[in-house]
Design a protein around this nucleic acid. Structure first.
Lengths: 113, 113
DNA sequence: CGGTATCCGTGCAGATACTG
DNA sequence: CAGTATCTGCACGGATACCG
């Protein structure tokens, strides 16, 4: 059987979802449509402002999310998923489905050491 | 709209596919069924023996692949995907499909800097 | 409110050499 | 053939403090 080199392109998708918080950020924005900075910070327990900003900037640069600044005091910034970002949904759904399906197995492995 | 905490389980799938070479190893084994150590090494250009071994060991520990040793000289070791490993296929397929679909966009971004 | 700036530890991954 | 062993670096992520 011949292996098609194309198959190695899987790396591309992985590099985009690679950041520790990126999948969750994308998921939240997919579901909420729009969230402010502090909403995301609350939704992601334990994330530092530096990490949140860097992850958001990277996703924005990939054009997966968009950033809208309201020029007012106090500042207001809204993040939302783009149409392009939405194309990642099948991947996230597949990962989510798998994780839910196999949580029991993982729990058993942890229990037995 | 309510966010379901379950959705954050996406991290589990990601941690399993996280290694740099793991997705490709899994893909090759899914397609070939069985491969020897040196076949994998050849199939993964640039991988060092240390990395290949460590990635294989981790996948084996997760029971995603199985390792069969033939006690002979010179040694012969075969790796193959398990039924459990096969359950990851939808994720890898989704990632592959997305990557193929969006290679053009990536190429354009690289071209323009 | 929505970020920056700075410092720091660790873990992943590569290079190289050696072995049963 | 199928690995180990050892050394190395640097990107990733975290902690903390500060700013327009």
């Amino acid at each position: 059987m011949e292996i098609k080199p194309q198959l190695c392109q899987v790396q591309d998708a992985l590099s985009i979802l690679g950041g520790k918080w990126k999948p969750m950020i994308l998921l939240f924005l997919m579901l909420e449509g729009t969230m402010r900075y502090r909403d995301l910070k609350q939704a992601l327990p334990g994330i530092t402002p530096k990490m949140l900003t860097s992850q958001l900037r990277e996703l924005e640069q990939e054009e997966l999310i968009s950033r809208k600044v309201y020029p007012q005091v106090p500042p207001k910034v809204e993040y939302s998923i783009t149409a392009y970002g939405m194309t990642l949904r099948p991947i996230l759904d597949a990962m989510h489905a798998w994780s839910v399906e196999h949580m029991a197995r993982k729990a058993a492995r942890v229990a037995q050491g």
